[in-house]
Simulated assay, not measured.
Amino acid sequence: MAAEVKKIAVSMRKRAGAGKVKRQKAVFLLIAIVPSFGGYLLFTLYPNILSIYYSLLNWDGLSEPKFVGFSNYIFMVSDQFVWRALYHNLLYMIVVPFAILIISLLLAYLLNNKPYRENGFYKVLYFFTNILSAVVVALLWSFIFDGSFGLLNGILELVGIPAGGYYWLGDTRTALWALVIPMVWGGVGLYAVIFMNAISGIPKSIYEAAIIEGARPMQILIKITIPLIRGVIRVCALFVVLGTIKGFEMIMIMTNGGPEGSTDVIGLYMFNMAFGKEYHNYGYASAIGMVLFVILVAAKLILDKYYPDEGVEY
């Protein structure tokens, strides 16, 4: 009888201990998940749902909102400024990520295969551009492109090319492409460092075997390095593409979409439509934001389809 009572007591203690462990796990999960999930609901999901509602309104943010249904979307189809901004986004989405990834990859490959003593310094130097804010970068390059005292015109004059006080950001023929340079300059450093770290993780024996077989540096880069860091390149490409589509801060500071709308992008057009001096149409701006959201999702799906994530084993 005493043995049975002892067994029951031990069983009850085990159940109590198991119940205590479950409660501790529940409390831990509650503490770990609820703040993050609550922040997601409050700062991501709720604003997006609210934007969908705003996109169906004619509202300036102050007066009584008027429900107009899909009128904002219908008007957007015939809005030539939206299509012009999307065209500029498309150009930037093709040129800027391609240039950033190619230059970053070449720099990273060069520094990893040439063991300079200054490699650590180069990492810091490349990453320095990412420490600077977009405002600082925009102001810096605005001075460089300035027609009166800009560094670019000064260099051209030194090499015998008469610039004649040319304003690179004030001409519709050059403003759009001039903005590509600071975008690439400001993005290369981060991805060069990422690629350097990714390449350094590739076993040296693979490169040694390729060199013994007579492979040239460019062949090693294309046939060995790039395939082995494919996953890293994919993630970087995703961030660069999505960042290029969404970004407008640098353009707003340097040209604000001018001259004559030649550098306008969809994010800047949406911002000016909501908070600009001439317009205060939150409903239409929200509709443009919904289109931008669809474009971002479509870009992500296209990248996943044509550049799938494939694991690599050394």
Rank of each mutant, 00 (worst) to 15 (best):
K123A: 12
T44A: 13
F145C: 04
L169V: 03
Y306G: 15
A99C: 15
Y54D: 05
I233Y: 00
G19K: 11
N112L: 10
K20E: 04
W141I: 13
F127I: 02
E260Y: 13
E4P: 05
V180D: 00
A299T: 12
M12G: 07
Y46K: 08
I131P: 10
S51W: 01
K6M: 11
G311S: 15
Y73E: 04
F271T: 06
L221I: 01
A198D: 02
I94V: 12
L86S: 06
R216E: 06
A237S: 07
L29H: 04
P308M: 09
M250G: 07
A3T: 12
G214I: 04
I155L: 09
M270R: 08
W83D: 11
L110N: 07
W141R: 01
A210P: 02
L86I: 14
D60M: 14
F127D: 01
L45T: 04
A237W: 03
S63T: 12
E208V: 00
I49A: 14
L110A: 07
E157C: 08
A237D: 03
V21S: 06
L90R: 09
T255N: 09
L303M: 07
Y307Q: 12
N256I: 14
W168T: 00
V135G: 04
G189W: 00
E260H: 13
G289M: 11
P65Q: 10
V124Y: 05
F67M: 07
Y314N: 11
T129F: 09
Q219G: 01
L30A: 11
A134I: 13
P47R: 06
G150Y: 01
G276H: 09
A26G: 06
M252T: 05
S133Y: 10
Y314F: 09
A285S: 15
W168L: 04
A298G: 09
S133I: 11
I233A: 03
K246C: 04
Y92M: 15
T263Q: 09
D264M: 14
H280G: 06
L41R: 04
V159L: 04
I8F: 08
I222P: 02
D309F: 08
M270S: 14
A192R: 01
S11R: 05
S11E: 13
I144N: 04
G186K: 01
E313C: 03
L179V: 02
N89E: 14
P227Y: 05
I181K: 14
L179R: 03
N281H: 12
I288E: 00
M290Y: 02
K277L: 15
A163Q: 01
Y207L: 00
V68I: 13
F128D: 07
I33G: 03
P259Y: 09
F81H: 06
G38W: 03
G311H: 06
L303K: 05
P97I: 11
G165D: 06
A3Y: 10
G120L: 15
G165K: 01
F239A: 07
P162L: 03
V188K: 01
